[in-house]
């Protein structure tokens, strides 16, 4: 097949890079499995990288809508105590977080 390129190999450093971008801590074993599985899946979907799509625009929304606006009218929002109800760490009526380095 013309334009065929072999499936991209995802190496371990790419797996670690992507996991960091995704804010996922993976164990070394998980990294290894992920490398194999992602390479396998990408092998299946790699066909799309060689199809002729010249001049075809991207679809971002399947049903054509104009900009959707709402009336600029104030309304009640969620009460603070309800918004905080499920929070694991509430500090001074706010969500608590550990320090940022």
């Amino acid at each position: 097949m013309l334009g065929y390129s072999p499936p991209p190999m995802i190496d371990e450093s790419t797996v670690r890079h992507v996991a960091r971008l995704a804010r996922l801590r993976l164990s070394p074993e998980e990294e290894q499995v992920m490398q194999q599985e992602l390479s396998g899946i990408l092998g299946h979907i790699d066909a799309i990288t060689s199809m002729d799509l010249d001049g075809v625009p991207p679809t971002t929304h399947v049903i054509a809508l104009e900009n959707v606006l709402r009336a600029d009218v104030p309304r009640d929002s969620l009460p603070r105590e309800e918004a905080l109800r499920e929070a694991p760490d509430v500090v001074d009526d706010s969500f608590g977080v550990p320090r940022m380095d």
Binding site: R20, R23, R25, S27, V97, P98, R99, M100
Partner: peptide, 13 residues
Amino acid sequence: ADNLLDQYELTRG
């Protein structure tokens, strides 16, 4: 965790 990034990553992982 001691800092926010570690907490995100550990929790999600």
